[in-house]
């Protein structure tokens, strides 16, 4: 098994927009939707949007990541919602 940090951009990109569970460090688990995986540090950026709450963002450092499992697949709507967190006015700039 390849370490998470030695994976390719193609592999990391497969996780974008999906809800995942990231296992890190001392068996800590973090859940959220993947906004990106930094190709330099392999760090995973998760976003959680809950009703009546501010969206929260969590960066899990690549060196600490031991496993990433997809829980639920995202949709175009979740992708759009996630982009609006980072680019309120120019979400279209990040379209792939």
């Amino acid at each position: 098994m390849l370490r998470w940090s030695s994976r390719s951009p193609r592999h990391w990109h497969e996780f974008v927009n999906h809800e995942v569970c990231v296992t890190a460090g001392d068996q800590q688990r973090f859940e959220g939707r993947v906004f990106t995986v930094d190709p330099v540090s392999a760090s995973v950026v998760l976003v959680s949007v809950q009703e009546n709450e501010c969206p929260s963002v969590r960066v899990i450092l690549g060196h600490a990541v031991t496993d990433v499992q997809i829980l639920r697949r995202g949709t175009e709507e979740t992708e759009r919602q996630m982009k609006s967190v980072f680019l309120p006015d120019r979400a279209q700039d990040l379209s792939a």
């Binding site: 974008v16 963002v57 980072f86 990040l94």
Partner: peptide, 21 residues
């Protein structure tokens, strides 16, 4: 080229995350 495009998209999103933080 596809790999470069994916890497650039992932990296730009990460840099934007740091700016937001």
């Amino acid at each position: 080229e596809e790999e470069q495009r994916l890497r650039a998209e992932l990296r730009e999103r990460f840099l934007r995350t740091l700016l937001l933080m």
